[in-house]
Amino acid sequence: MPQIAQLADTWSSQVFWLLVFFGITFFVIGKGMVPKVMETVAQRDGQIAADLAAAKAARDAADDQEEAWRVRENENRAAAQAIVTKAKDEAAAKSEKKLKAAQTRIDKKLADAEARIEEARMAALAEVESVAVEAAQDIVKTLAGVKVTKPVATKAVKEQMAHG
């Protein structure tokens, strides 16, 4: 086993050269190069984290804007709805007013017409009465030869007409 057989002759050289080369490895590679490699990794990780954060912020901002747009949109819709409703109400009120006015006019016309009809009827009745009185006077004079005065005849006619 050379490890033991050569121990006395070689241990110092083994230890010396190991310290030399492991020392070079440690100070040049371990201390000099590895931190730079790790720094690069850390930089990249930082960059990725920053990019992710930026992307998230952008998404959040987009969400906020969409939300704001939605709110505004809803407001606009509500406002439009209100305007439509108001216009409808106004139109309804106006047409109602017009209808009322028309109704009033029609009612008045109707009332006038009725009044006129009533008047005409009264006039006609009065005419019929006077005609009937004259006719009664004539009939009585012709049949009985009695001269009936107008007031008496009128009274008789009125009585008869009142009974139908």
Partner: peptide, 29 residues
């Protein structure tokens, strides 16, 4: 103390150099 440059030391040197080149390849940053 004897510090003969042996085949063992040679392979330590080779290991160091290869390791150096390996890590150097990762230093492009």
């Amino acid at each position: 103390y004897n510090i003969a440059f042996t085949n063992s030391a040679m392979w330590m040197l080779i290991t160091t150099v290869v390791l150096f080149l390996f890590v150097l390849g990762g230093m492009k940053r």
